[in-house]
């Protein structure tokens, strides 16, 4: 026969899904929240995001090209996604040079030093974020006032910080309520905070899109948010003066952003649903503990990083249910 036929082992067909598609779909899911951020914080939000994305892609390219000497893979979308998530986790007023340092840490230390996509134990964007929070605590917690408010103030406090400060000064939660945005404001995103965390509703919209496209499954976000709700709810029932009602914690401080977009990072979360449950339980509990009893008003980033560290252990001990295995 004149033609050369391809010989390869089965299967001979393949899903149309790919790593690139997954990454670009997560990015697409984040677009509504990004638009909202630009609406609230103006061009500053655009500056932070573009800079973070470009810096992450540039560092990935340069490091892969000149240090690890491999074929640069910046088109797979993962570096761009890390950039967006990094931007979403910082104030819109963050100076450009700090963003660039954050990108270098996220990509260089958080991702490529471990061998690149798939080999990093910790979520790269969170590595960058936590590094910045510890190194530049002032700039990382100066929250800009949104551009629609008529005020002389340049910065403001996040709802979580207002709450923490008030409780530390001995005020009961009920007295603090009028200083805090209403649940409705929190839901659609009329509050101060990191760029991408403010609109719970739009983050949920992206979640729905990702579920529809089967990018992720519901397990991790639902388990995390459920744990926060139940744990905080329990505390609230015991002492409503010291512990605010749980819905507040679901809608503030990047709980949604963390649970839906950061904790679900495939590389750094467990493989089986059972493992994911344990992982999510840990994240929820640690988040509530830090927020109520820790030094920082916000704790989901730390919680996710800690459980990222436990993921290999969870994967090693939580095995899927085998077909025909012993019960």
């Amino acid at each position: 026969m004149s033609k050369l036929l391809t010989i390869s082992p089965s299967p001979h067909v393949h899903t149309s899904d790919s790593v690139n598609k997954i990454m670009y779909r997560v990015i697409l899911a984040l677009v509504p929240a990004l638009v909202w951020s630009v609406f609230m914080f103006g061009v500053e939000a655009m500056r932070v995001t573009l800079l973070a994305v470009i810096a992450c892609m540039a560092f990935e390219y340069l490091i892969q090209r000149f240090i690890t000497k491999e074929e640069p893979k910046i088109t797979d979308g993962s570096a761009a996604l890390t950039g967006i998530l990094l931007a979403f986790n910082v104030p819109a007023s963050l100076p450009s040079w700090i963003i660039i340092i954050g990108a270098l840490i996220a990509i260089g230390v958080g991702k490529l030093s471990f061998g690149g996509l798939g080999n990093n134990p910790f979520n790269p964007a969170l590595v960058g974020r936590v590094f910045l929070l510890i190194s530049f605590p002032v700039q990382m917690t100066s929250w800009p006032v949104n551009i629609h408010v008529q005020t002389d103030a340049v910065t403001t406090a996040t709802p979580l910080a207002i709450l923490k400060e008030g409780i530390k000064n001995g005020q009961p939660v009920s007295d603090l309520m009028h200083n805090l945005p209403s649940s409705l404001d929190l839901l659609y995103g009329n509050m101060s905070g990191s760029m991408g965390e403010i609109s719970a509703a739009l983050l949920l919209l992206g979640f729905a899109y990702m579920l529809w496209k089967k990018v992720i499954t519901w397990h991790i976000p639902v388990f995390i948010l459920g744990t926060i709700f139940v744990f905080q709810g329990g505390l609230h029932l015991i002492n409503p003066d010291k512990f605010i009602e749980p819905l507040f914690h679901l809608l503030t401080g990047g709980a949604m952003l963390g649970a839906i977009y950061m904790a679900t990072d495939m590389v750094t979360s467990p493989m089986t649903h059972k493992g994911q449950f344990i992982y999510a339980l840990g994240i929820g509990i640690i988040t509530v503990l830090i927020r109520n009893f820790g030094a920082y008003p916000e704790g989901i980033s730390f919680a996710i990083l800690i459980l990222n560290g436990f993921t290999p252990l969870i994967n090693a001990y939580v095995k899927p249910k085998r077909f025909g295995g012993k019960k």
Binding site: L117, G118, M266, M271, F323
Partner: peptide, 17 residues
């Protein structure tokens, strides 16, 4: 490409491997 540890192979394996 590198395994991105998405767990899909685990989810679809009919033998639970």
């Amino acid at each position: 490409q590198n395994c991105i540890r998405c767990g899909r192979c685990v989810t679809v394996c009919p033998m639970g491997l």
